[in-house]
């Protein structure tokens, strides 16, 4: 089965067709360019594979967690492409993809914690037996500390951001430039093979947080 996958949950815009990936990593301090880059990257990986829509068996999109607007750009694109081509559509956890990439790269049994920068001094976290959630730095330190005795590796842009406290809690964080910290759509393609196709045409983003207005109303 050939999968076309893409992700816009983090600053990077990534697209892959099977094992071929093309990406846009905006330089630190610049805004992500998902709306501009995503469709050209998608067409790029298909063109380079000499493939057309007829060669795609499944479209997989990263559902996050990540930036709200980023998630919607990816999902709006996926929903529309699937609607226009009648190709099967699946959603894939961005955190699970980070985790799978690290699991594949590390040749040992250490646990893996996938950590995405959630801004506002918080992190989206999953792995090592933890379901996707939002954690404060304190909570993140606790989670890492509780698992440190078995050996734990933290990956993702959030792991880089919270390196000091993760290392203090006993976790290993690969060096800043390591590819393990970057979301790779190649692993979305692999996860998509086992995912359940969406029949409603609507992909649910994993926001994990309510809109500010909703929170303010409840106070």
């Amino acid at each position: 089965m050939k999968v076309l996958a893409f992700d816009t949950a983090t600053a990077a815009t990534v697209a892959a067709f099977g094992e071929l990936e093309r990406r846009d990593d905006p330089p630190a301090g610049t805004r992500p360019a998902h709306a501009q880059k995503l469709l050209s990257l998608i067409h790029g990986v298909l063109d380079e594979s000499n493939a057309g829509w007829g060669d795609v068996d499944r479209i997989a999109v990263g559902v996050g967690p990540g930036t709200f607007t980023g998630l919607r750009i990816g999902i709006a694109t996926a929903q529309a492409l699937a609607q226009a081509t009648a190709i099967e559509l699946v959603g894939v956890s961005t955190l699970a993809s980070l985790e799978l990439a690290a699991r594949t790269a590390l040749a040992d049994q250490r646990q893996i914690l996938a950590v995405i920068d959630a801004r506002r001094n918080e992190a989206f976290v999953s792995g090592a037996g933890l379901n996707p959630c939002v954690l404060t730095p304190e909570g993140l330190g606790d989670v890492a500390g509780q698992r440190a005795s078995d050996g734990i590796v933290a990956v993702g842009d959030g792991a880089v951001k919270f390196r000091a406290l993760l290392e203090q809690a006993g976790a290993t964080v690969p060096q800043d430039g390591s590819p393990l910290h970057r979301v790779s759509a190649i692993y979305h393609c692999r996860l998509a093979l086992d995912a359940q196709p969406i029949t409603t045409g609507v992909v649910a983003p994993e926001y994990l947080r309510q809109p500010d207005a909703e929170l303010a109303r409840k106070l």
């Binding site: 709306a35 469709l39 709200f68 709006a76 694109t77 492409l81 226009a84």
Partner: peptide
């Protein structure tokens, strides 16, 4: 509203591009 515009605009570009 940029976030709102992006949903429809990206979907429309994708529909057009796929065909």
């Amino acid at each position: 509203l940029v976030a709102a515009l992006l949903v429809g605009f990206c979907a429309a570009k994708s529909l057009a591009a796929a065909r």
